[in-house]
Design a protein around this nucleic acid. Structure first.
Lengths: 148, 148
DNA sequence: CTTATTTCCTACTGATTTGCTCGGCTTTCT
DNA sequence: AGAAAGCCGAGCAAATCAGTAGGAAATAAG
């Protein structure tokens, strides 16, 4: 039940882009440096995000990446699904094309995995990049208060 | 975010033992055959469950395995934790000993993974083997009704 | 006492996934 | 022209997965 670094790095990178939303294209090496991620590896991940239409790229000098939609319209679930595939603890409850299983109708464990899938999806789909930006602002205010 | 076969097979095997609870020790080859699992492989998994105290074994002819507690006191979460380790989509929100991360206090993504962990744990910890037995009975009744 | 049944234990293995690295090509701004 | 970026494909070491293989020890039944 672990997430791979694809999903983790992907969410970090997208959050970084959200924090810089409106400031033009952000070069990948900036994102990689700020988040301690190998630039070459992140390149492969963001290529997937680009092909899925979540980010746009600007080539050439002063180029970089931009969110293709505003932060409130992108959820963590969107990012995870692109990088990790459909949310499902086991293949027989896959969101897209559930693997066929002849005794699915009578399978008790299957119902459990469906519940897990739904609860994970509910959490991930309810959090937008904008929510994260706001939470980040709250945290900063709190730590400011702490030093008064 | 996939469960391995360890968790899946383990829950199936434990549910099988729950269905046979009170009928003395159940030999492993029966469980393996009923659930289409390699007996040798299941052997390794049930050894872990035994060492964790979830099942008891009876050696020798007419031996086998028995749940060490009644089905209503064993949750799916208990089984998964034994076979797959602590529930956590990433190590920094591990239930037992979270991996140290110096900027955990300011990490926004960390909060997301903690929410995922909690929602998964909530689902898995709320389902006991007895719940599964009852659901199984309901399903059987429904399919009986269907044929009247 | 012997034999069949069953658990217990250790080691090995092929396939797949993960988490990268390396090198080079193309585009575009200055 | 040159530097700064994205784009692309190949390769690779380590870990994990999902088993196999083979036998030793315990116990019930005959």
């Amino acid at each position: 039940m672990k997430l791979s670094t694809k999903g983790r790095y992907g969410v970090k990178a997208m959050f970084d882009l959200a924090q810089n939303y409106g400031s033009g294209p952000i070069p990948l090496n900036n994102i990689a440096r700020r988040n301690n991620i190998s630039e070459h590896y992140l390149e492969q991940l963001i290529a997937v995000l680009r092909k899925a239409g979540l980010v746009k790229s600007v080539r050439g000098a002063q180029g970089g990446y931009i969110l293709s939609k505003s932060p409130e319209t992108i959820t963590v679930g969107d990012i995870i699904r692109v990088l990790e595939g459909p949310i499902a603890p086991v293949d027989c409850v896959n969101e897209d094309e559930p693997e066929h299983c002849e005794n699915a109708d009578f399978c008790i464990t299957r119902n459990i995995w469906a519940k897990v899938r739904d609860s994970v999806a509910q959490v991930l789909d309810s959090i937008t990049l904008k929510d994260m930006l706001e939470e980040s602002k709250n945290l900063q205010e709190q730590s400011y208060m702490y030093y008064i």
